[in-house]
Design a binder for these strands. Structure first.
Lengths: 361, 361
DNA sequence: AATGCGTTTTTAATCGTTTGGTATGATTGC
DNA sequence: GCAATCATACCAAACGATTAAAAACGCATT
């Protein structure tokens, strides 16, 4: 009961002392109350040198008292700045992108930026519509990871020609000049093969979900390169597209047909169906089929067997990309050279790729 | 090569036919070129009855030709509408919230709304700062799920007093009058106990991650109610707070000390540490300890044993909440009564709670 | 007292869109 | 034949913040 009362008082303090909240407080309200012009208030709040310390103090005091903050539309209109960035990603139900968003949001908040989120759902058409909806002025910049379907870039060129700062991350187009933040995909594809090979695999498969995208295939190229060096003929035949809604049985038979003794799951969405397929076919992971997956979820450590993964520095990637973007937004086209930052991912070996001699008891 | 050429042509069409893009196109540009006033253009684009069909046609034609779209700041300033909603959630690395976002985004896009995302990271202070940063005008409405730490609501009242439409979902405060979308939490807490009981458990624990929040405890109350009905004394002692960074060993000993034969993981973040603890302590899930978790990830079906979960209609919840919000935004305070929508979650029984007689071979 | 200089403040224009009031013919009604 | 009505389009005033340019002021120097 006493708690309730104190809470009530607190609320009243906050709410009623500050003036009837129906009255909009804008720069003019403040100006009138202080007997100065609106420009004085504006300059004072922007800490202009033209304003005396005394005036600044008075303005600031009243502004905080009324919790004033400038109308974003008005200043946006005037300055052509929105303090807003957009993030366009294929999806969010994926640990990788979730972590990226975390990174983006944390940097953006500190720098005073707001973050708009858009999901392309891997669809080119949606991606195009999203970019179209980002009309002139709504955003100061854009962070983007391409949809799998995207093979053509006029919608992006369109945005770039409007001088909107743009930073790509993870799924980046080789065809477009822009800042990019990526991981060492090629190397990882290559090393993933090496890892499986060292664990005794000789028939290594590469699983894609849905269609392959020729522009996003560095990882795949690393895979192919590694297979070639092992003198495998027709390495492309080791790449298998797994349809979205595949049955356990079909998946299992596919693995059998190719007689893989090791597979690389190129995205985390494949882990569940793969595990499920092996279970239904009584294919023992680690013993009969070694598995390495590109994914970021913590459950990898508690699957049985525990899953060997390639861990991406997802949050870091979000942060770096956002920092690059904000730098580009705030430094008026200083550099025309575009940076390509490469972060290092690492393979974390676990039971699913243990060499036979050391197989779990 | 021929593909490249056709692509080039396509791009040129899009980019150069449409006029030098350095020239900003605004309503005035259109007006001048059409020899009409800006108001005519504006009204034509808004399909006003004051404008003749012929004029409308001409305006629309030129507008589409130049891909004109009104400057959002200008119309925002004028109309005091931003076509933007904000989502404030505790985190995004959680399948539940990820799915909610999916739902929100899908509805918002169709209705022409943009979605700002903010993460409170379960911190009250961050949540407060976020709400503060949502100054007058930036958003038309707000969707929100409370941070665990939040026990006091002046920051929210503050926003409400500015007449910003607000819809809560999932983690909703009982203390605040607003639209709410929830699941049948109480019932689920109750039924979770019943499910474990039916599987033979007699010492059932409820695992929380971090601190309990008295305002978000319907699920917990359902749990307590069920225990009471089973004539368990001191049911509160069955609720255990698991610290964020708990060691496997500590976790395991905790389970032993309480001699639980069944536990409810109240959030999905607990699954990994729980599984890990059981593994390290050689505690056999399903046989020695039955587990039921509130979570939404697909991997539940491939853990071993497979995990009994409570599946929330997360995407549905995001959609419903957004629909409610947009309705509230667009229908000027028609109803003063607030809706509370309750969606049904369901328990999906899997191996981790199989009764002993049927234990996996 | 006039001039100049530096500081501080005000005036007024601007950003792009929307909209209430108004003007212009043309049409209709009495 | 004159007023009322209607369709159509324009004018100008918002919306709120920012910022060049101008003005006002204080103070010191000549």
């Amino acid at each position: 009961m006493p708690l309730d009362i104190s809470e009530g008082i607190f609320r009243r303090n906050k709410t009623f002392t500050t003036r009837s909240l129906k009255t909009k407080i804008n720069i003019q309200t403040l100006a009138k109350e202080l007997n100065v012009s609106t420009s004085t208030v504006s300059k004072a709040l922007n800490d202009s040198h033209e304003i005396s310390d005394e005036t600044k103090r008075r303005v600031l005091e009243l502004a905080t008292k009324y919790q004033y903050s400038p109308n974003p539309h008005a200043s946006g209109l005037r300055n052509n700045k929105s303090k807003t960035i957009a993030v366009v990603i294929p999806e969010v139900g994926n640990s990788f992108f979730a972590s990226v968003i975390k990174g983006i949001e944390s940097v953006a908040r500190v720098q005073g930026y707001h973050v708009l989120i858009y999901l392309s759902n891997e669809s080119f058409e949606k991606e195009r519509m999203i970019l179209e909806s980002l009309q002139l002025g709504r955003i100061d910049g854009l962070l983007m990871s391409l949809a799998l379907e995207t093979q053509e870039f006029s919608h992006i060129q369109n945005l770039l020609s409007q001088d909107i700062p743009l930073v790509f991350f993870d799924r980046v187009p080789q065809e477009i000049q822009a800042h990019k933040v990526v991981t060492n995909e090629f190397e990882l594809g290559y090393r993933a093969v090496q890892h499986l090979w060292d664990s005794g695999c000789r028939q290594i498969g590469y699983l894609l979900n849905g269609t392959s995208n020729s522009t996003l295939n560095l990882r795949q190229q690393g895979f192919l390169k590694a297979l070639s060096e092992k003198n495998i003929t027709n390495p492309e035949t080791h790449i298998v597209e797994i349809p979205k809604e595949i049955s356990d049985d079909t998946f299992f038979r596919l693995l059998q047909d190719k007689s893989f003794d090791g597979v690389i799951a190129s995205v985390e969405e494949l882990v569940t169906p793969l595990w499920s397929a092996c279970k239904s076919g009584a294919l023992v992971i680690a013993q009969e089929l070694k598995v390495l997956s590109f994914c970021d979820f913590p459950l990898a450590t508690v699957l049985s067997p525990t899953l060997t993964t390639v861990k991406h520095p997802a949050t870091e990637m979000g942060k770096k990309a956002t920092e690059l973007l904000i730098a580009q937004i705030e430094k008026p086209r200083k550099t025309l050279s575009f940076q390509s930052i490469m972060l290092q991912s690492e393979i974390i070996p676990r039971e699913s790729t243990l060499a036979l001699s050391k197989t779990i008891s």
